[in-house]
Amino acid sequence: MTHGRLTITPSSGQLALSGSIDESSELDKLLARAQNGALVLDLAGVTFINSLGVRDWIRMLAAATQRGITVELVRVSEPIIHQLNMIIATRARTHSFFAPYACDRCGREDSMLIDADAHGAQLAQLVPPGMTCPECGTAMVFNDFPERYFSFLAPQDL
């Protein structure tokens, strides 16, 4: 199923979104796919969101609240994390997300998946979980400011 430039693929109780979230995305229609009062969105494939997409996203969250639906996010891509950090109103419970890491040894830069539930206490201390370079096996370093990148997890903002 496609909404404009966004492709939606149902997958084991979740909706996997891929492509761009913009003026053509009609995100509120996703709420009809909620199961047991929850809409779980896999955002790994979302590569772009603009201000019109942000507006649509916020409207979708507001409509979900009105209808008693909980929106939960898994495998959130970096472009979406930037918006969650920038605009508080876009935030929703996030179980896992991608974050930038770099390998000082081989120079590889990668977007690595972080399990926010498993590493909650560590992330609250702004300590990035350790990652191993898929290329050379060396420990990677977090490639952003933790206080900036993890700010969307701040409990007072949720």
Binding site: N50, S51, L52, V54, R55, I58, R59, N85, M86, I87, I88, A89
Partner: peptide
């Protein structure tokens, strides 16, 4: 400080 801006005009 768009964190507080909501979704009004000028967000872009």
């Amino acid at each position: 400080h768009a964190r507080d801006a909501g979704a009004g005009a000028g967000l872009g």
